[in-house]
């Protein structure tokens, strides 16, 4: 399998505070990866760098077969290249229906003129319905998404991510605030997604990570502390030190 995303020797600092310090990371196509780390380890900043929200002070971020640099691209351009991101807090368009949310996310031309003259084809509607079924929201399509429960919103956001049909999914704490049953379903969705694309999951919850059953990267103070299977990293004395030592 070829490398999809490669982050090499990236650093970024805010007002002298080094949020990311010489971090290197890569992920292959179709790989499922979990990132764990204590608070302030730089997980969110790491995602910000990949998605173009934050520009690193130094280092390289390259993407795809042709090794395109992502550093000069805007968030929207990066998203169009095929990187989808789910935020920590569920962010869906609460004022709009679940259906409209999903339609907005469907992989289509993103320019204003195409959006203006966009007509829903039956293919699109079928796709939305399929997605809705996948995220357990088939019966909620016409509801305003603001009226959904917290877990439903998380699913909707994952559904929107899938609708984008990205090659890489960045998922920030997808299971936060979910019931056990909801978590299980979320795990299923993510594992299913990882069969066709790469997925990076940032998570605190070790049980959830265990269920994902994948390679784990541990971040600490802005750089990679350890990488490997969950059992491998949890036995790493440095990781134990970081998690339990304080």
């Amino acid at each position: 399998m070829s490398t999809l995303l490669e982050v090499s020797a990236v650093s970024v600092s805010f007002d002298g505070f080094k949020a990311i310090n010489d971090l290197s990371f890569d992920i292959n196509e179709g790989e499922l990866r979990a990132i764990i780390g204590p608070n302030g380890a730089g997980k969110t900043t790491f995602m910000d760098i990949i998605t173009g929200k934050t520009r690193p002070d130094k280092g390289k971020v390259t993407w795809g077969e042709t090794n395109i640099s992502l550093l000069r691209k805007t968030e929207a351009q990066i998203a169009r290249l095929g990187i989808g991101r789910k935020f920590q807090r569920p962010t869906v368009f609460e004022d709009q229906s679940v259906f409209d949310n999903l339609v907005m996310a469907l992989k289509k031309d993103r320019d204003p003129v195409s959006a203006l003259f966009y007509k829903r084809s039956t293919v699109d509607i079928d796709r939305v319905n399929a997605l809705a079924a996948e995220i357990n929201l088939s019966s909620q399509l016409q509801r305003k998404s603001g009226e959904l429960s917290h877990g439903q919103k998380q699913w909707l956001e994952i559904g929107m991510l899938l609708a984008q049909d990205p090659r890489l999914l960045l998922v920030d704490e997808p299971a936060a605030g979910m019931t056990v049953a909801e978590r299980r379903h979320t795990t299923d969705i993510l594992r299913e997604a990882a069969t066709t694309r790469a997925v990076i999951v940032v998570e605190h919850d070790m049980d959830f990570v265990r269920q994902l059953d994948c390679r784990v990267t541990v971040l600490h103070e802005g750089s990679v502390l350890a990488e490997g299977s969950l059992d491998h990293v949890t036995n790493d004395p440095r990781v134990i030190e970081v998690y339990l030592g304080r």
């Binding site: 998605t51 929200k53 805007t74 968030e75 929207a76 351009q77 998203a79 169009r80 989808g84 991101r85 935020f87 962010t91 869906v92 368009f93 609460e94 004022d95 709009q96 409209d100 339609v103 907005m104 996310a105 993103r110 320019d111 204003p112 959006a115 203006l116 966009y118 929107m160 984008q164």
Partner: peptide, 24 residues
């Protein structure tokens, strides 16, 4: 239509629209 959806999305959460791939 979809255009309206997008601009209302921009109003409510500009960053989210951007991460959906739209050039806000």
């Amino acid at each position: 239509g979809k255009f309206g959806s997008i601009i209302r999305g921009i109003r409510d959460d500009e960053a989210r629209v951007r991460f959906l791939g739209y050039s806000v």
